[in-house]
Write a protein that binds this DNA or RNA. Structure first.
Lengths: 153, 153
DNA sequence: CAAGCAGCTTGCATTTTGCAAGTAGAATTA
DNA sequence: TAATTCTACTTGCAAAATGCAAGCTGCTTG
């Protein structure tokens, strides 16, 4: 079957740690994000304004198309992202973060801070790392408000 | 060769994103922690007072011994943990977090907060989630001080 | 000095990943 | 309106990572 559900039938079905190796919160996040690719999709949605399948494929880490399809489906199943038809082009889908996805922002920001400290070649701009130190909450709400703009492109 | 270095010869060799798929901070953390097991070892060191090889093997997620050996070695190479001989038993090694490892605490706490919000079966105690909301910094410094105690067992 | 423990290593079957190529439907172009 | 292109996948297969069991080695303990 080629058709896949555009809206999440299982939105009411919570994914929780009964389906996991343990009820540990660290393990819980690993069961969804514990691989080399999933968090890059979140990054693209959260920080890079990417919305379409082809946008994710074009990222510099070069995710392969079968892995991307698999990860997008899993993220939708678990309520982290939404998939809707692009009103401007009915052959395209728009992927976006749900509230559950947006709530990963503090995790993403702490990761960015840690990498900023320990990767001498990090591409995070100085002003961003500075803002992380001096006004994390302000930075976070700015990023969230940009996410809610009709289009960030 | 059976013998492996007990102290990190490459401590001066920084692992940075030149060896990675990109210079992105999110990708940087994935290159070390982007798998199903590594972060559980960090959790055991950070929150559970585990120190010995056998302690990690005994965790409820049941890591297998070859994977554990591989992950411990990688973490040591990358300067996230230290490996020393246990003075109480010269056939044992003690693993511990370096400063670089301890600096993952904010990431771990945000993960715990997120899972606390979205996993209805999380095993994180209510008081811990409460403390995360109300006094994150206080909670963090308490955890760090416990890490520095001579033995938390 | 024999037995046991702690920390691995090795071998092999299973699963996941990575790359290339193919497919289906909507939109665009000729 | 027929052919081509665009977008989002699916499929097949080789390569790599994982999982399990067994084995090995250097202490320590009886």
């Amino acid at each position: 079957m080629y058709f896949t559900s555009t809206f999440n039938d299982n939105a009411h079905m919570e994914f929780n740690s009964k389906d996991c190796r343990s009820n540990c919160p660290i393990n819980f996040i690993l069961e969804t994000f514990g691989d080399k690719w999933t968090l890059l999709v979140i990054r693209d949605l959260m920080f890079k304004g990417k919305r379409h399948y082809g946008d994710f494929l074009a990222s510099e880490e070069k995710i392969s198309t079968n892995i991307l399809a698999d990860r997008l489906q899993r993220l939708e199943e678990r309520g982290v992202i939404n998939k809707t038809i692009d009103p401007n082009n009915r052959s395209k889908f728009i992927y976006s973060l749900t509230q559950k996805g947006k709530d990963l922002l503090p995790v993403m920001l702490e990761i960015t801070a840690w990498s900023g400290r320990y990767d001498s070649l990090t591409n995070t701009p100085k002003w961003f790392l500075q803002a992380l130190k001096e006004d994390k909450a302000g930075l976070a709400s700015k990023i969230l408000s940009e996410l809610d703009e009709p289009s960030s492109k």
